[in-house]
Amino acid sequence: MPVAGVDIGSLTAKAVVLQGREVLSTSLTQTGHNSRVAGRRALDMALDRMGLDEGSLGFIVATGYGRTAADFAGERITEITCHARGANRTHPEARTVIDLGGQDSKAIAIDERGKVLDFVMNDKCSAGTGRFLEVMASALEVELDDLGSLSLESTSPASISSVCTVFAESEVVSRVAEGAPKVDIIAGIHQAIASRIYAMAARIPTNEALIITGGVARNIGVVRALEQKFDTRIVVPEMPQHMGALGAAIIAGEHHE
């Protein structure tokens, strides 16, 4: 019997339908203002793709910030545990998960079974998160999805020293006023994020088997900057945004058994 994991994040809601070890279907939708509705929509979208309905599911686990609103779920688990389990399923060799989501960033140390050994989260600050990149993209008048590829064109990244979103935005405006090329400013922003994540992750044991999850993982510029900072290659899974939902579905599968 299939099971589902639903990850209701601050910006997007994701669902994964799983049968045994096989991913049957996935979905992604904007969260908007109503977490419950968004979670339900994500679940329905994933089910529709397979022509399934909720009754055909053996168990549902919800995760993400909106999980408490997911009244359709049999259990609610934090996304820290879920990202760890998801990453462990697709890349069993991973021992450190860096999850860069819409409104927070986390570093999670895991063992060979995907069990959380330790974790750190950003403080009440959006620097280094998807929201931070959204603000920067808007200040530079470029598409969010273009940030990554643009930054790779940079030969001399600008210096963005502030780690605060608000201050960094004004720094970006100053760099623009100084006439710095956009690609260099974007590369500078990615380096600033990488420094911040690196400093945070240093509080827990990290090793070379790094994997990155969450929406920001889609930004190749951030990934490259992190690789430089950590001095190692970082694995980007096929669907980084769905790792939390995948982990939730794996736990749902264990419940169903």
């Binding site: 910030y65 996304e79 820290i80 330790d118 974790f119 009440k124």
Partner: peptide
């Protein structure tokens, strides 16, 4: 931040 604290506490207990 209430939401962040809840996240941390629950993840800690899960681990």
């Amino acid at each position: 931040s209430e939401a962040q604290t809840r996240e941390r506490v629950e993840a800690f207990i899960e681990s």
